[in-house]
Write a protein that binds this DNA or RNA. Structure first.
Length: 482
RNA sequence: GGCUGCGUAGCAAAAUGGUUAUGCAGUGGCCUGCAAAGCCAUCUACGGCGGUUCGAUUCCGCCCGCAGCCUCCA
């Protein structure tokens, strides 16, 4: 029984798909004028995890995540760069897809772009004008008349009187009401523009999402997601546009993920306190970032710091160490069994509004059992390993070979350029590993000769290079990177 | 100012009206030549004040503190 917190009702609700066995989910994606930061990574990972879980539950999911590839910031950045805006957005779309692959985020089923949805946008604006929910302002821009939509403010718990009392809205003389928002914006000279009944221009941001979601999923669909900050005005405006245009209910469940913070402040471009995914990938491997994001509930704030990333690394190491040497060749048997009690606990956690921290606690419990089974040479270790890896897979983690993960460089071997590699290839063993094996052999010889001083020196030297040696009871030595 | 939400041990982070969260770190033990890893044990908690209750970290009220939104933002 899957329960999801619905922003619209501020309650956890039992999830009931509109059509039995099917789910339509739309998530507001990126505006592509710069590299993705960790906040964007959180949206991708959170909703990827949600999508994976729906599929695991047997739902036929259509997951749509749009791309905003035309807006003021894109135009401004293109001018600054002296670059064609289309070239600019192509570059950052490619970069986004690289980041996505690195984080083991499965691509959405559909990825509509605003610039490829202009016809649908114009059609929707026209309907809103016909229904007198929208009007052409004195400057030629088309605006939505907010007061004409009776439920305006319901999602964000605001009402128009309060908003106007806030007095933080620029007074735009072209609008009838300061809260009215733009649906179609007239183009200035040399700006990218599309022909429309109201003249050359481009769509407003909010109408893009209404048009694209409706195009892909129909007038009424199950889930709409995005960051907390989109609640108002973006999602509020989407409801006004879509319900205004179609006369139908727009979305059943609204899901909003919490922010990534730095020093207790929202990570954002405007504050300038953001870390891009590729920056962080220089220090930490992609799976560590994904694990870090999953350590907190998706609606809670997530504080970004080196300390928390190091903790994530340590936790993930523990899981991989448990998986290491659990099976003769690290291969899960073909017809493996998943231990039911762990599976049930894991599912209970996930079905309680996607409680990934709790789900991870189940994995740690499993790791503890597995370590004991290994110690006692119990055959149970096979089924425990299979279960741990299987449940980890549902979260998009623990799919690497344990040795590849543990011996992989702490930071990705990818420079600025080649992040477009899958997580497992980033873990490829490097040539320096032969040297490590030689040193381990030398140390084993020294140990045999009871030359502890030499043995310890070798171990300490390797430690200084970030390599940790671990002797096992059978006389062999394994190693991993710090 | 209005509207949301949050405040859990050294750090991170869940659940819960009475019973072990979990991870990292610390302490003691086992294991080890010594370590590391692992296993066992263990110390640190529920912002403050009231109320409801046999009993509240958990429900209610007030206060304090923090964050987000009210303008583009995941």
């Amino acid at each position: 029984m899957l329960k999801i917190y619905n922003t619209l009702t501020r309650k956890k609700e039992l999830f009931q798909p509109r059509v039995s066995g099917k789910v339509g989910m739309y998530v507001c994606g990126m505006t592509v004028y710069d590299y993705c930061h960790i906040g964007h990574a959180r949206v991708m990972v959170v909703f990827d995890t949600v999508a994976r879980y729906f599929r695991y539950q047997g739902y036929e999911l259509t997951y749509v995540r749009n791309i905003t590839d035309i807006d003021d910031k894109i135009i401004q950045r293109a001018i600054e760069n002296g670059e064609d805006y289309g070239k600019l957005t192509e570059r950052f779309i490619d970069a986004m897809h690289e980041d996505e692959r690195a984080l083991a985020v499965l691509p959405p089923d559909l990825e509509p772009r605003a610039t490829q949805s202009i016809d649908a946008i114009i059609a929707m604006v026209q309907i809103l004008i016909d229904k007198e929910l929208a009007y052409v302002g004195t400057n030629g821009d088309v605006f939505y008349a907010v007061t004409k939509f009776k439920d305006y403010g319901r999602l964000s718990g605001k009402n128009l009187d309060d908003l106007q009392a806030g007095e933080r809205v620029d007074v735009d003389l072209a609008k009838r009401n300061p809260m009215d928002f733009v649906l179609w914006k007239m183009a200035k000279a040399n700006e990218p523009a599309w022909d429309s009944p109201w003249g050359l221009g481009r769509p407003g941001w909010h109408i893009e999402c209404s048009a694209m979601s409706t195009c892909c999923l129909g007038n009424h669909f199950d889930i709409h997601g995005g960051g907390m900050d989109l609640q108002f005005p973006h999602h509020e405006n989407e409801i006004a546009q879509s319900e205004g245009a179609t006369g139908e209910k727009f979305v059943n469940v609204w899901m909003h993920n919490g922010f990534v913070r730095v020093d207790d402040e929202k990570m954002s471009k405007s504050l300038g306190n953001f870390f891009t995914v590729r920056e962080v990938l220089k220090k930490y491997r992609p799976e560590i970032i994904r694990f870090f994001i999953l350590t907190s509930h998706y609606r809670s704030p997530l504080n970004y710091s080196d300390e928390s990333l190091n903790d994530a690394k340590a936790g993930l190491d523990r899981l991989y160490i448990a998986l290491r040497d659990a099976l003769p060749d690290d291969k899960i048997p073909e017809n493996f069994i998943v231990l039911d009690d762990y599976k049930v606990r894991f599912e209970q956690a996930m079905e309680d509004d996607f409680n990934t921290p709790e789900a991870l606690a189940v994995l740690f419990g499993l790791a503890n059992e597995l370590n004991k089974a290994k110690k006692h040479k119990s055959e149970n270790k096979i089924v425990l390993t299979a279960t741990l890896k299987y449940l980890g897979g549902l979260l998009g983690i623990l799919q690497d070979e344990p040795d590849a993960f543990l011996k992989g460089k702490r930071h990705s071997i990818i420079g600025d350029i080649t992040i477009s590699i899958t997580p497992s290839t980033t873990m490829k063993l490097t040539s320096g590993d032969e040297y490590i094996d030689q040193q381990i052999q030398a140390r084993l010889d020294a140990k045999k000769a009871k030359n502890w001083a030499l043995a310890d020196k070798i171990r300490n030297d390797l430690k200084d290079q970030g390599v940790i040696l671990e002797d096992s009871p059978d006389g062999t030595t394994s190693w991993r990177r710090e």
